[in-house]
Structures are given as structure tokens and as C-alpha cells.
């Protein structure tokens, strides 16, 4: 099948490249662009480890075709923060002990961001509900919810600028 040219914004930078129509977005990120922060836990839409933000919404990138990224604004964990400046959610995850093996963490962070960006002060139940598509086998979720709640109490996850 013929390749298709797609354009999208990835972590704030415009990207333009050619992709096969059957290529999955998670494979584009991990294999082609070397952005391995996005994880694959199941490849079937069940675990949320591959969560990225598409126009601010949390999406399982293992179920998304790369061509569908065309024209959208996409954020992966690499776009959240860096060594010099962690995102408040990243800081809270560390401070609250919400990271054990860390395999669910990138997806959790992005799901949390997608909640706080539209609802800066969610209740605990709303947080639990919103991240219920992100499986974590290590933490029992308690400290993850604590961390998100902490950021929500501090005034939400809106950008630091």
C-alpha cells in the first residue's frame, strides 16, 4: 500500500513524515522516532501503558493508526518535563512515592494531565474514575491518586509558565 504524508505537532514541535497506512502510532513513536517513554503493556487497549495525549485527550496509542495523528497536537511523556524542569505531576509522583516499577508511569502521568487540564480540582473519586483505564500492578493506586490529588490541591496541572 502506498505511504502517506502526515503532519502533526509532537511535544510542541511540528513533524512531517511519510508513514505506511497500517503503522500504529505507538510504533511510529517508539521505533521510528525513538521516543521509548511510551510503553506497550498489552497492545490491545487494555492497560493504558501506551497513553498519549491527542489534542489534550488521553488515547491508547497502541490502538491508533499513525495516519490518524495527521493534523493533531500530540503530547508524550517526553513532552511533559525534563531534568531541569519536571512537570508538577512528575514532581508529585516522585514525592508521594507513586512510582515503583515505573512501567505504568508515563501513561498514568498523561491520563492525569488530561484530567487536570479540563478539571483542575477533581475529587478523589473523579481521579480514580479517570485513571481506571491505566493498570498498575505495583502500587495499588493509592499513592498515584495521592500524587494527582496533591497537584489538584496546588491549583491543577496547568502549564507552569
Amino acid at each position: 500500500m502506498s505511504k502517506r504524508m502526515i503532519k502533526f505537532v509532537l511535544n510542541g514541535k511540528p513533524i512531517e513524515l511519510e508513514v505506511e497506512p497500517e503503522l500504529l502510532f505507538v510504533d511510529l513513536l517508539r521505533e521510528r522516532l525513538g521516543l521509548t517513554g511510551t510503553k506497550v503493556g498489552c497492545g490491545e487497549g487494555d492497560c493504558g501503558a501506551c497513553t498519549v495525549l491527542v489534542d489534550g485527550k488521553n488515547v491508547n496509542s497502541c490502538l491508533m493508526l499513525a495516519v490518524k495523528a495527521d493534523g493533531h497536537d500530540i503530547v508524550t511523556v517526553e513532552g511533559l518535563g525534563d531534568y531541569d524542569k519536571l512537570h508538577p505531576l512528575q514532581e508529585a509522583f516522585i514525592a508521594e512515592g507513586a512510582v515503583q516499577c515505573g512501567f505504568c508511569t508515563p501513561g498514568m502521568l498523561l491520563s492525569a494531565k488530561s484530567l487536570l487540564d479540563v478539571n483542575p480540582h477533581p475529587k478523589r473519586e473523579e481521579i480514580s474514575r479517570h485513571i481506571s483505564g491505566n493498570l498498575c500492578r505495583c502500587t495499588g493506586y493509592t499513592k498515584i491518586v495521592n500524587a494527582i490529588e496533591k497537584v489538584a490541591c496546588q491549583g491543577g496541572g496547568e502549564d507552569r509558565e
Partner: peptide, 23 residues
């Protein structure tokens, strides 16, 4: 004392290398 976990920063940044990430 609950010091900061030594591997936490790499994990939240998504730069920790799991086996599938190695190329």
C-alpha cells in the same frame, strides 16, 4: 527516612530504559 527513590526521576521522565526500549 523516605528519601527520594534513586530511580524515580528517570522513570517519570520516560527515559529509564526497559529491555524493549534498547536499540
Amino acid at each position: 527516612h523516605s528519601v527520594q527513590k534513586l530511580d524515580a526521576v528517570e522513570k517519570v521522565l520516560g527515559v529509564a530504559k526497559y529491555a524493549a526500549d534498547i536499540q
